[in-house]
């Protein structure tokens, strides 16, 4: 291994300066309180529970988690971002980057999106359809597989 010389040490100092500045800046950013999000399926679906890990894998297209379930993303941006953050633990931008990587390496495509008005119909018409809703928008004849509050306790 070649020796570490002065410019590299200077680079390292500058790197940590940038890191510590970012850390300091992050202290000033407030995080809005999150409302509960529910992951739901049609009432007669065989699957009765979902862990946060399984839900994440399902909506990120990782592995063959549960082929009986077909994930549907939501069109409403605030709800989508809250779901990504609360369940998957990623920002919406990170999830978009993840799917760009999946798509352009031939691994798969992101879930289709449904709007608030279509959720009930999609759950009814598509066997195995799973999506997420805000706590005050629970569709009729649906079953909750996971709530974000429940997920936090796991």
């Amino acid at each position: 291994m070649s020796r570490i010389h002065l410019p590299f040490a200077l680079c390292a100092r500058l790197f940590w300066t940038a890191v510590s500045s970012t850390l300091a800046l992050s202290l000033f950013v407030s995080v809005a309180a999150a409302e509960e999000v529910l992951i739901v399926v049609q009432q007669d679906t065989e699957v009765t529970t979902l862990t946060r890990e399984e839900a994440s894998n399902l909506f990120l297209g990782l592995g063959s988690t549960n082929s009986r379930l077909i994930p549907f993303d939501r069109s409403e941006q605030p709800l989508r971002e809250r779901f990504y953050r609360e369940v998957i633990g990623l920002s919406a931008a990170s999830v978009r980057a993840h799917w760009a990587k999946q798509v352009f390496t031939g691994r798969g495509r992101p879930p289709a999106r449904v709007s608030k008005t279509d959720v009930t119909q999609v759950l009814k018409d598509k066997p195995g359809a799973v999506t997420y809703v805000a706590i005050d928008q629970l569709p009729a004849h649906s079953r909750v597989l996971l709530s974000t509050e429940q997920g936090e306790q796991e």
Partner: peptide, 8 residues
């Protein structure tokens, strides 16, 4: 695998 896809 996605080095051309800078967006990702």
């Amino acid at each position: 695998e996605n080095r051309q896809v800078r967006y990702a």
